[in-house]
């Protein structure tokens, strides 16, 4: 390379570097603004994988109705979602569990967006069709090990548990076991679909999944004599039920507020929420 061309190249490189630096600082500035006052074109929604189907569908409908707005949805788990909204890396954090005491001081505002009930599922070939909540707890704690102890056939109970990152497990543990430890010999599967699949195939299996994901391959048990039907869940007689939450840092404002209102509108509640297998809030008092 001749010295002249080398000089020219160096000058070009310098220009490019300067340009790059300018663009970077512009990006950084944009980033700052997004952190301070909410962006008007981009909304980040992160959290519970349970809520992800609702968030995804709502995102598509909202983007269609509001051209130019981008909603980014990520299913990273409830804990990660709460962390992301608290740290400002998302505007809305979604969670399928209540805030832990340690998370209460983060200044997060909770807006429930749907009911989610957890169904206790067994293999369709299992003649048992209902258990008391205490029996369910005893099974998952490992104190009842055979179906004949709860009126079923002489068949070993195969417990299918979720992994500890699961919001469903956290809710189930809190509502049913009262925080007591699960049977440590139980199988631990990372996903609702896997739990349902395994229960559908093993005669002695028992597991738990959100009511929205129950299908014909498994049988949902009644608990304390109450079937996990929509009516029983919205009127709160079905005992294993929880709320799904949208969390914002402080009162929702700007785009986050509009998106929340959209999710709570009948357009989403009566279609998306129902189709995802959850139950709408139904204007009940918070």
């Amino acid at each position: 390379m001749s010295p002249l061309r080398a000089r020219a190249a160096a000058r070009t490189a310098l220009t490019l570097t300067l340009l790059g630096a300018l663009m970077l600082s512009a990006l950084a500035l944009a980033g700052c603004r997004r952190g301070g006052e909410a962006s008007t074109t981009q909304l980040r929604v992160q959290g519970s994988t349970t809520i992800q189907p609702i968030a995804e569908m709502a995102k598509e409908m909202y983007e269609e109705a509001h051209p130019g707005v981008t909603v980014l949805v990520a299913g990273v788990g409830s804990s990660a979602g709460i962390e992301s909204v608290a740290s400002g890396s998302s505007e809305i954090g979604t969670s399928s569990r209540d805030l832990k005491p340690a998370e209460a001081g983060l200044g997060l505002v909770d807006t429930p967006i749907a009911h989610d009930a957890i169904a206790v599922i067994v293999n369709p070939a299992n003649p048992v069709s209902g258990l008391s909540k205490a029996q369910v707890a005893a099974i998952f704690e490992g104190r009842i090990k055979n179906w004949d102890e709860v009126g079923g056939p002489d068949l070993e109970i195969g417990i299918v548990n979720r992994d500890e990152a699961s919001g469903t497990r956290e809710a189930f543990s809190k509502i049913v076991l009262g925080g007591k430890p699960f049977d440590p010999t139980a199988a631990v599967l990372p996903g609702t679909g896997q739990v349902r699949f395994v229960v559908a195939q093993a005669r002695g299996a028992i597991g738990y999944i959100s009511v929205g994901f129950v299908d014909k391959t498994v049988k949902a048990l009644s608990v304390d004599g109450v079937e996990p039907t929509e009516a029983n869940i919205t009127n709160k007689t079905y005992p294993i039920s929880r709320l799904l939450h949208f969390l914002t840092k402080g009162e929702p404002e700007g785009l986050a507020k509009e998106f929340l209102a959209f999710v709570l509108s009948p357009a989403v509640q009566e279609t998306v929420v129902r189709e995802a297998g959850f139950l709408p809030m139904g204007g009940e008092p918070k």
Binding site: V160, Q194, V198, Q201, A202, R203
Partner: peptide
């Protein structure tokens, strides 16, 4: 293993197949 083998083992053993 999960989709093909485990169900067979589950049938044979009466457990979950894991």
């Amino acid at each position: 293993g999960l989709l093909a083998l485990r169900p067979i083992i589950a049938q044979a053993s009466g457990g979950l197949g894991f």
